[in-house]
């Protein structure tokens, strides 16, 4: 049996016109937080559904804690708390009824942690799901995924619909689960969120895992939007000469550019001027793909 929390070996799922996933090779170690990044439709949910045994692989295999995800899905489910994307359940039921139902299926009687989760997430657990906002649906989903303190949390776009404050609470809860030894597999298209939680990320695009990276490396090498406002007119030429600088535009005292790579040289160069304002914005995930993986596109296709 494998020691890893998740193992995918050439995992492929094709169905009908949908592309699914192709040849996914992946290992997530116990206790690790792994981010699964990619645009919508890239294959994130398909991978998670294969891990849960919802989908039979066309070829290849997937294991969770050494159990085959398709043939031993009941064993897998014992160890996993799964939050499906856009969580929903019988809309007549209240949040507590959902949690009690799940608890019964799991034969897990202790709802103490469920109460703590509901309180911290400020989840509205007493009204039927049909009356709840998307964010409140998601909170019920998080409670039902986490209350039994599973060894592995599979979270598919978990913060959709959550307000920023609750997003922070959620990220704290995930950090606490990890401190207790849980493994986290977080699918997202939000780089910032993944950065907060995960050490490693897998990047999936067009059904293929195109890279697994240390999140620190990814962020360091990712594209940034830079806007510098100086007290006096600023010469763009030295900035254009910086490694990784693109689209450098100087307009008197204002200079904008995009930077792929380290910011250290940029900051030191900027420091030679009297700076009025400096903005460094993180690129969107799409831009990360374009700047960082665009060059691999030919190999991927």
């Amino acid at each position: 049996m494998s020691e890893d929390a998740i193992v995918c070996e050439r995992l492929t799922k094709r169905y009908g016109k949908h592309r699914g996933i192709e040849d996914i090779d992946l290992r997530v170690h116990p206790g690790e937080a792994f981010g699964f990044l990619g645009p919508n439709g890239a294959g994130k949910s398909t991978t998670i559904r294969a891990l849960m045994g919802f989908l039979r692989p066309t070829s290849g295999r997937a294991e969770v804690f050494g159990f085959d995800c398709w043939r031993q899905s009941v064993e897998v489910a014992k160890h996993v708390g799964n939050l499906p994307g856009d969580f929903t359940y019988d809309e007549q039921l209240t949040g507590w009824e959902v949690v009690r139902h799940v608890a019964r299926l799991r034969r897990h009687d202790d709802l103490a942690f469920a109460r703590e989760l509901a309180e911290r997430l400020e989840a509205d657990m007493d009204r039927p799901l049909r009356h709840l906002s998307r964010g409140n649906h998601q909170k019920v989903g998080l409670v039902q995924a986490m209350f039994h303190q599973p060894r592995l949390l599979l979270l598919d776009e978990p913060t959709g619909g959550l307000d920023p404050l609750m997003r922070e609470t959620f990220l704290d809860l995930v950090a606490e689960a990890r401190a207790d030894g849980a493994t986290v597999f977080l699918s997202s298209h939000n780089l910032e969120e993944v950065h907060r939680v995960c050490e490693r990320v897998g990047i999936i695009r067009d059904a293929r895992l195109i890279a697994t990276e240390d999140i620190g490396d990814l962020i360091r090498r990712a594209l940034r939007h830079v806007r510098i406002t100086a007290a006096a007119p600023i010469d763009p030429a030295p900035f254009a000469a910086l490694e990784g600088a693109q689209d450098v535009h100087g307009d008197g005292t204002t200079l904008t550019l995009r930077l792929a790579g380290e910011v250290d040289a940029l900051v030191k160069l900027a420091a030679q001027h009297e700076i009025v304002d400096l903005e460094i914005g993180r690129a969107s995930l799409e831009e990360v793909f374009l700047s960082f993986y665009g060059r691999t596109e030919n190999h991927v296709a």
Partner: peptide
Amino acid sequence: NRSLDVILSQPV
């Protein structure tokens, strides 16, 4: 309506 996802996420 995807409630099957929740049921089959349990050891059933």
